[in-house]
Structures are given as C-alpha cells and as structure tokens.
Design a protein around this nucleic acid. Structure first.
Lengths: 334, 334
DNA sequence: CTGTTAGCGCATTCAT
DNA sequence: ATGAATGCGCTAACAG
C-alpha cells in the first residue's frame, strides 16, 4: 500500500534517496541508509516490481520453458535452477511449453521478453520462428538438453550416453541388444533420443554387430512408453538378451512388463536406463547417470552471466559428465 | 520494443483506442479494432505486463508456494493448477518456501502481493506473522492441503485417510499395525501427518486395539524416511504384521528395506501408502489414492474466483474424495 | 551526499 | 466511437 513517497516523507528525505538507499547504491550516508531501512520494514514497504521494471527494463524474473510440469527430469532441473536464481533475487516463472506435437499454448517470445529478463528452455524444441523471435527479442536464453543453434546450452553428450549404455552390455557379453527411445509422435526437433540411438548403433557397429531395425523401437519418455514397446518387442520372433532404454522411466516400464510376462531380469534380459531417476535405485536399475539438478544450476548460472554481460559473441556450450551406475538389472547373457 | 504509441501512430488512432481495442473492451468499432489487431501482430506489439500492471494493479500472475520443487505430489498439484491459470491468461511464479525448519528463503507477503494477484500455498505452514501479513495484504490465497485458518482450501480429509488405510488392514485381520509418518524435524504446523496418524489411532481404538507408542515412528516424507523408520522399527523386540505409511514414498522405502532385510511383503508384512504416486503401481503398492492433479485444478479455480469476486466473507473449504486402491502389498496376516 | 525533474508504457477518467 | 490529459510507483540524469 505505502509507496516510496510515503516512506520518503516519513523519513524526511526524497524518494530518490530512498530508492538509492534500499538498493544499496552508493551515494547515501550510512546513517541515512540505516534510518531508511528501518522505516522501510517498519512500514512494511517494499518496492513494486512492476513499477521499478518500467524505468529499468528489468523484471527480476526468469522464465522456464518445460515440456511437462510433472516429469521427474524437468523438476529436478528446475529445482537446481530455482535455487540459483532465487539466491540472486530472481523469481521463476513457469511455462508449460508442451512438445512440438502437443503444444497447449504457443510460447510467444514477445510476451516472454516483456515478462522476464532471461529464459531457460528445457528440452523444448523451439520452432524456427520461435527461435528467431527469441533471438530478435535479444533476451538471454540458455537451453538444457538439445542445444538450439546460436544459443548457449548445458547438456550431456547424448551420443556418448548411448555408447556407454550399450558398451556396458557389450562388455558383459551381450550381442543381441535392443533400443527403446524416441517419442513416435515427436520425432522432429527433440534430438536426445536420436542421439542416444546413434550412440547405441555406433557402439554396436564398433563391436561388429549390425543394428536390427525391428529391435529399435520408438517409445514415449514414460513408464507407459517402456511397457508398450516391450510388449511389442516380445512379439517378435527373436528376442534380444538386453535392452538399452533412453530413459529410466522407459526402463521401469520394461522392468514392470517383463515381470508381468514372466521374463526374468537380469536372468533372461538385461536392462539399462538413462538419468538415474530418484527412484531408480529402488528397482536396482543399472543406468547411465547424469547430474540433473546440477545441470539446472549450471544453466541458471550461465543465464545469469549472459544477462549481466550481454550475449557473448560465441554461445557457450557446457557438457556435463555422465557415469554408468552398475546395479542389478544387468548381467552376462545366459 | 515498439510501444503502444508507435502502434497507435502506425494505425492512425490514439493510444487509448489501441488499449481498448486490444483488450476487447467495448467502444471501438469492429473495423478499427480489426485494423489495430492486424497492425499489432504485424509489428509484434504486445502490451508490457509491468506497464499495464501499474495503472491496473493487476499482474496477471499467480504465485505458488511449495515446500520442495522436486517432489511428485507438489508437481502434480502445480501441473493441475498451471493448466487452469494458463487457460485464463495467468502466469505461474514458483516459490520454494521450504518447511518450517528448513526455509531457504522467508516468503515475504509484501513482495508477494506486489508480484502476483493471488497465491496458492501447497502444504506450506505459514508462520502466524506470515499468515497475518498475507491476510493484511488482502491478496487472494488458497491452500492445498492443511487449511490455514481464515483461508480457503482444497484438501482431503486426512483423518479419514488414516482411517481408510488402517481399516483396510484391520479388515484383512491385522491387529498389530504400525504407523510411519510425520517429519521429526517438522512437527509443528504441518498437520497432514498428525491427522493421518489420528485416523490410524482412531481406527485402531474402534477395533479395540490400543496404539503402541513404539510402533508409531516419525518419518520424513521420502523414500529415505521410510527406509530409516523401517530399520528402526525392526529393531524392536516385537514386529507388527502391517504398516500404514503416511505417503507412498515412505511406503516405497519400507518396501525396499524390507526386501533388503529379507522380510517378505505381503507374506510377513503388509504395507499401505497414501497418494497413489505415479509410480506406485509399479510396486504393486496398496494405497489410499487422492486426486492430486485435480486438487491443483480446483485450487486454481477457487483462487481465480476469489480474485474476481473479492474474498468472500466465509472462506470456502473443498474436500475431495479418496479411495483405497487394493494392490499387492497387503494380505491377511500369516 | 541529497533533492528536483522527467519520463518508463500503459490504462483511465473526461471530453468531444 | 475516439482523443487528450493525468497518474500508476519508481528510477535516472542532472543539479546543488
């Protein structure tokens, strides 16, 4: 309710001085500043973000674009990011962007750039026009996951992820390995699954094995996706001895359906996932772990830097390391 | 970049007309309105939220207070809420409030009320002063979960939840039933666990069984909480034949540790959780399900209504129904 | 070190 | 149906 002028009047100084004092700007005597601070929280004064964003052009908020709100991976990233930005006095505005196929609300770069000072795009495949608009609005943008051309990003090496998972199985002695991943309804612009698949194929070929098309199944990034794909796979005449799942959730679906269908893991079938989901250890799931929360933190820090220093000429690309966690869903083939 | 005056000039009308036209207000000829709309998205004009919030006092954003970003329950609620508010043109600002004991950042009602038009508080125990401040700032507030006195809320009947879970076990023939729940470090102000416990005790007594203090263990709302509590419980001289867990995550922890310790479920031990977590069916977990996403939707709708009609005299309290889902972790005692 | 002046971009009376 | 004037609450450039 009380504005800056009331406070100023109350203390007996000008609004300008109050503004400077409260924001820690130089040019205010320690004495005056203290008096103002005191009166401020005594009167419960706090500057209106809308009002200050007008002259400054800064909103002190950063936007986060996520395909789905309620998916473990994205939440973990958001959690990491939120911690960092909050620490710097920024608020987080959450936008559900949807995927390229099911997009609840088209993200408008213009409104976005008015509301926030920077945006974090998580595995969201911006359309070409959106990317351009974002680019043009010259608002800072960093992606987590697939890098958009021209933008800074934080990610893992997905090809390598595919290689690591497959290599582990190969080392165990498997020769008949399937791959689950890639949303059939979202084949375009969501390169994480294709890259992991590429790594899988690469590792296979390096071992002198030719990938079999009927053992490479599309699967939505969810438990259900893994279940469906497994059922389909098991209808094939020949069964593999191992499966690389593009995510832990897919792997969980495999595990669940395998048990239901009487396929023993890792006896008859080995399974390796990707992510190290919070609950994966409960399943004893072997997985290629990636530091999810940390990626959120890094992305937030990178974004904050970009916002401060202006977009550097060269977009920065950070890759974080992954590590295979060998648990109980993988074993030598019988 | 381009402001309302540029657009107005471009079209050859006054800024006032542009403002009215774009917001669908009456008093603009259809012809003029269409011309303005056309020019608007041709020039990529969109009103600055900060600027318009100044005269109107509305920010078109609603704030969500969550104890933890990355916990299934809260995300599911947020997902429901986001869908509803986005549909009404509102943005969602996410605040990690922490619990009463570990609060990363104290939520300032004053800054909150400047940034958002209303707030959704999820299981967050506002301190008395915070509640007062929120009250005073006269910003709309609805809670999900424990109702704060004087505020509208959406929740389940937690006492009944406790009764349902316990009753199920009782009906199965169990007489020796333990209860896990309630963060030991957050005993104050987070009434969901106590209420569920109360229901547990009530059901027990109704069956002529006196609750045993050493079978009621505090447990953080997480897998780890369930694991720790189970280890502790099993050190007791006497073991129960069943456990009521205050959440599915706690139950998962029990399941995991039981298996590790060679306790068969449901052979030697029955377990029932609460929530129906997305992954619970993978464990065959018997649970008292609550419509989590729906609560988010209801809360958002209630909040929107409050914001439109002004805080009604009587705070509205919505309770949603719960249902026991009987899966595979419960059986008659052996 | 502090006060004055002038906008920031829009919504809103009140005229016309 | 439209335009002109005024103000929202704050910051910034310039005085003093």
């Amino acid at each position: 309710m009380s504005g800056i002028v009331d406070l100023a009047a109350h203390v007996g100084v000008s609004p300008a001085t109050v503004s400077r004092a409260l924001r820690g700007l130089p040019g205010v005597s320690d004495n005056t500043r203290e008096r103002i601070r005191l009166a401020a929280d005594q009167l419960g004064y706090v500057a209106s973000p809308s009002a200050s964003s007008l002259p400054t052009g800064k909103t002190k908020a950063i936007g986060v674009l996520v395909p789905w709100i309620s998916r473990w991976f994205f939440n973990a990233v958001v959690e990491g990011a939120q911690e960092v930005v909050a620490h710097h006095g920024y608020d987080l505005v959450l936008y559900a962007a949807g995927t390229s196929t099911s997009r609840p609300r088209t993200i408008d770069a213009r409104v976005l750039s008015k509301r926030v000072d920077g945006v974090l795009a998580l595995s969201v495949n911006l359309s070409h026009s959106e990317a351009e608009a974002l680019q043009a609005s010259r608002s800072a943008l960093v992606t987590v996951g697939p890098a958009a051309p021209g933008f800074s990003s934080v990610s893992v090496d997905d090809v390598r992820v595919g290689i690591m998972a497959t290599q582990h199985l190969l080392t165990l002695g498997h020769r008949r390995i399937a791959f689950f991943g890639g949303d059939p309804y979202d084949m375009f612009g969501f390169p994480v699954a294709p890259d992991r698949q590429a790594g899988y194929e690469k590792a296979l070929r390096a071992a002198g094995i030719e990938p079999r098309a009927n053992w490479i199944l599309p699967a939505e990034f969810s438990v259900f996706g893994g279940e469906s794909a497994f059922v389909q796979l098991w209808q094939e005449a020949e069964h593999p001895t191992a499966i690389v799942a593009a995510s832990d959730e897919i792997a969980m679906g495999i595990l669940h359906m395998a048990r239901a269908m009487g396929v023993s893991v890792p006896g008859e079938l080995s399974v390796v996932g990707v992510d190290d989901h919070d609950l994966s250890y409960l399943f004893g799931l072997t997985t290629v772990a990636q530091p999810v929360r940390h990626q959120g933190e890094l992305a937030a820090e990178l974004l904050l830097k970009l916002m401060k220093c202006g977009p550097s000429r060269e977009p920065e690309t950070i890759q974080v390391a992954t590590v295979l966690i060998d648990r109980a869903t993988t074993a030598p083939p019988s």
